[in-house]
Design a protein around this nucleic acid. Sequence first.
DNA 1: TGACAAAATAGAAAGTGTTTTTATATTTAA
DNA 2: TTAAATATAAAAACACTTTCTATTTTGTCA
Lengths: 137, 137
Amino acid sequence: MNELQKRLETYKRLGLKLTPQRLAILEYLENTREHPSAEDIYNALKDRFPSMSFATVYNTLEVLIEKGLVKELSIDSSKKRFDPFLHSHHHFICKQCGKIFDVERNFDILIPEELKEFEVSDFQVVFSGLCPTCKKK
Amino acid sequence: MNELQKRLETYKRLGLKLTPQRLAILEYLENTREHPSAEDIYNALKDRFPSMSFATVYNTLEVLIEKGLVKELSIDSSKKRFDPFLHSHHHFICKQCGKIFDVERNFDILIPEELKEFEVSDFQVVFSGLCPTCKKK
DNA sequence: TGACAAAATAGAAAGTGTTTTTATATTTAA
DNA sequence: TTAAATATAAAAACACTTTCTATTTTGTCA
């Protein structure tokens, strides 16, 4: 089964309608590690879909998030970033260029005592500083 | 030395001009643990300063951040939140009501091997889930 | 204290990123 | 094949943030 068929399967399984735009967005997300913003996605696809609108990008992202295929990141305070990697991982954001990198190591963090009245479902570690490229400058 | 005098000192030391608006913003920030947004600050102060504009709130925050008196949080993807607590601490965000809580426990996190080419200056742990109030519902 | 220069303010306008709306087109299921 | 459901493009609405400029305020120094 090739990649396209897998995507089709995934969509069907979730009861989503198959549209070329949606497939293209999913394909783009699956093939990048750039944690793109909605605009990045739009720009990447507008050559293939010159008539595509932002609404489609946002609508599709909303559906994908709802279905659990994509996560929304709140790491960049100027805009939302999207992440199709579902396995547990963390991030590094460069204070200079804004790029986000995956940090795949796991951290053994105990839920602190002060959160015992809370229902903690997840935690995220976000490192910040300079990426290798910006560090050299 | 009372609180007001301390604030005056802090401002003077940093070479900032003392304006009633700035003092009020600093005072408000020092007395809340709500991690307010710019709008929260504006709303909290508009009774005392009916003519105040958002520009002043944002300008002042910018200066305070620059001088290191306040930190900008990127935890809430819909808007910026501001935090005047400078000691090292982490956060919990409620997925339901959006409230942000401080987590004061320290975590011994080693900089992972995969970031050895990076310059890591900080890390933040963000827990998420339901706060005690939303958990009950 | 009064005057001056530098800096901050208010208010409005413009800029981003995101969401909603509406009419039309496409997809899916029967 | 057709009806119903859903997705689409395009524009408008929206929320948050930044920028601009004339006016006011602040700190400094005579």
